[in-house]
Design a protein around this nucleic acid. Structure first.
Lengths: 300, 300
DNA sequence: TAAATAATAGAACATACATTTCATTTTGTC
DNA sequence: GACAAAATGAAATGTATGTTCTATTATTTA
C-alpha cells in the first residue's frame, strides 16, 4: 500500500490499517476520522493535546500510513477541507435538483427532510411537564414494563434496553410464544407500563393497556394522535408525528422522545441519589455518580 | 475600525480600506478576496510568491487591517474555511450551545437538535450509489436476513418488519434461545445479510458477518464508523452518526437510513415489475402497482 | 531639479514547529 | 517470572516560518 493522496483514499487506508495499529495509534485514527477539520488546521502540538497523546505519536501515525511525515498527511486533510468548502453550494443544489422527481438515489434527502420536520413537530407538541411526569412515574415504579408490537416494536426495544442501563428494572413484553397475557398478570399497581402504538393500533396492545389501567398500573403512552385508543388508559400520553398532510411516518420522532425520556430519567435518578446521599449517608443509591454515566455510558 | 473576527466582517473591512491602500497592498487585497482558500492554508512565503510580492508586504497588509500579524488574520480565513465545509452541522451545534441555560425542560429540545445534526451528517456522508447498491443486493437476494443486537437491535426489527411488507422475504435473526449460529447455517450465497452494530461492537454480530462473508453472502453493514469491524466483511457499508463531539448517539440516523433503504427497495421492485410486465404480460410480478403502496402502505 | 517622504525589497532574526532520538514503560512470549 | 520486542513518553534538534529591520527605490512636493 502506498500513501493516499485523496481524502477518501486516506479514509479507506486508515480503516484498513486500523486493526493492526497500536492502541494509541488507533485513538489517533478515530480522532482523525471524527474531527478531520482539526487535523487539517491544527499544529502537531495542538492536535496531540486534543487527542491526549504525545506529538511524536502523530508522526508515528503518519508514518504508519506510509507518509514521510505528519505535514505530508496533513496536506490531504487540507485538500479535503477546501474541496468541501468549495463544492458545498454545488452539492446543495444537486440535492435540490434530485429530490424533485424523487426518482433515483435522492430519496435519502427526502427522508432526512421529513424526519427533520417530524422532529420539529415533536418539539412543538410535547410538553416538558409531561416528560417530567412520565420520568417520575418510571423512576418511582418498582418495575417498568414496555409493550409494543409491529411497527412500534423497535421503540419498545430501545426503551427496555436503555432503561435497563439505568437502575430501572425494565421488562420488554415482546409477546414471544404468545405469552403476553401471562406476562401481563405479573404487573402490579406499583409498576409502570409504557405502551407504544400507532395507526392502525394493535388490538392486543390496546387490550393490555386497558387491563393495566384497570389494575391501577401507571400507563405511559407513546402514540400518534390525540384520538388514539391508548389515550384514555394513560396517565401521560405523548402524541408524536402525524403532521397534517403526512399520511405516513418514520420512527424518528418517537425514538427521539424515547431517548429524551431515558436520559431525563437518568438525570432524575442521579439527582435523587445525590439528595438522598447528602441527607442520609448510609442509605445511598447504588450508583451515586449517575449523571455522567447517564450521559456517556447509557445507550442513548 | 478594529480587527475583524469573522470572515464576512473581514471582507467588508478589506473593501472599505481598499481605496486608501498602496498599489501593492491593493493587489494583495484582491488576491485575498479572490482566492481566500490559498490565503487560509498557504504560508507567507508561498502566498507572497503567488501574489508576486515580498513576504513582508503580507505582514504590512495584515497590519493595515489592524491585525498584529499575518497569522492572526489568517485565522479568520481558516475559520471561514471550516465553517463553509461543515456549515450545516456547525450551525446546529451553535444553536445547541445557545440553549444550554434552559436546562430544565430543554432536554427534549437538546435531543431534537442533536438528532437533526445527526440527520444532517447522515445526508452528507451517505452516498446515493451505496444506497442503490444495497437496494439491488436486497432485491436480488433470495432471502434477506437482518441481524443486530443490543442497542442496534431496534434497527434490525424495523428493517425486517418493513421489508416483509415488500415482496422481500426478510428474516430477523434475534438470537432468541441462543440459536443464532443455527440460523446462520441456513444462509446461502444467494441470500443477503444486513448487519447493524455500533460501538462497542457485539462480538456475535461480528462473527456472524465474517462467517456470512466467507460463505459468499452479500453483507450490507450499517455501522457508525469507517473503523467498524463489520466493514471488511461488507459488500456495502454505511457509516452513520459519530458526530464530532458527541460520544453517544441515538438511533435516529440509522433508522432514517433504514427507512430510505426500504422505500427505495420498494421503488426498485416496482420498476422491475413494471418492466417485466411490459415485456411479457403473462409473467408479471405479484404486485405491479408497488410504487404507491410502498410509499403509503408500507411501514415507513 | 533636489529634497523629503512613502513604499518596497531583501536579508537577518527570533520563534514556533515538525521531526528525531533516546529513555521508559508496556506488552507479548518463552 | 524473566526476557525480548514493541509501544509510548519526553526532551533535544534542526528546519521552516513569521516577523522585523535596514537599504533601496519610487513618488511627491518645494
Amino acid at each position: 500500500m502506498t500513501q493516499a493522496t485523496s481524502y477518501d483514499k486516506l479514509k479507506g487506508a486508515i480503516s484498513q490499517a486500523y486493526p493492526d495499529l497500536s492502541g494509541q495509534l488507533q485513538r489517533i485514527a478515530r480522532f482523525a476520522l471524527e474531527r478531520p477539520n482539526e487535523f487539517a488546521l491544527g499544529t502537531v502540538a495542538v492536535i496531540a493535546e486534543a487527542v491526549q497523546v504525545q506529538p511524536s505519536s502523530l508522526i508515528r501515525f503518519a508514518n504508519a500510513l506510509e507518509y514521510k511525515g505528519f505535514s505530508e498527511m496533513q496536506q490531504v486533510f487540507r485538500g479535503n477541507l477546501v474541496e468541501r468548502s468549495t463544492s458545498y453550494r454545488e452539492r446543495i443544489d444537486q440535492l435540490r435538483r434530485q429530490d424533485r422527481p424523487g426518482s433515483k438515489g435522492g430519496s435519502l434527502h427526502q427522508f432526512v427532510g421529513e424526519a427533520i420536520a417530524e422532529l420539529g413537530n415533536l418539539e412543538e407538541t410535547v410538553r416538558a411537564v409531561d416528560v417530567m411526569t412520565a420520568v417520575k412515574l418510571m423512576c418511582g415504579a418498582d418495575r417498568v414494563y414496555v409493550l409494543a408490537q409491529r411497527r412500534a416494536f423497535p421503540v419498545a426495544c430501545y426503551l427496555s434496553y436503555a432503561l435497563s442501563h439505568l437502575d430501572i428494572k425494565a421488562y420488554l413484553l415482546d409477546g414471544a410464544g404468545g405469552m403476553l397475557s401471562e406476562a401481563l398478570k405479573n404487573i402490579t399497581a406499583r409498576d409502570a407500563l409504557i405502551v407504544t402504538s400507532f395507526r392502525s393500533y394493535s388490538q392486543p396492545v390496546i387490550d393490555a393497556a386497558g387491563l393495566a389501567h384497570e389494575q391501577g398500573v401507571s400507563v405511559i403512552a407513546i402514540t400518534d394522535s390525540a384520538l388514539s385508543p391508548l389515550k384514555p388508559f394513560a396517565r401521560v400520553s405523548f402524541e408524536v408525528g402525524s403532521t397534517v398532510d403526512q399520511p405516513f411516518r418514520s420512527l424518528v420522532a418517537p425514538l427521539c422522545l424515547a431517548q429524551a425520556l431515558v436520559v431525563t430519567a437518568g438525570h432524575h435518578l442521579a439527582e435523587a441519589s445525590i439528595k438522598s446521599a447528602s441527607t442520609s449517608q448510609s442509605k445511598s443509591r447504588t450508583k451515586p455518580k449517575k449523571t455522567t454515566s447517564a450521559r456517556n455510558g447509557v445507550a442513548p
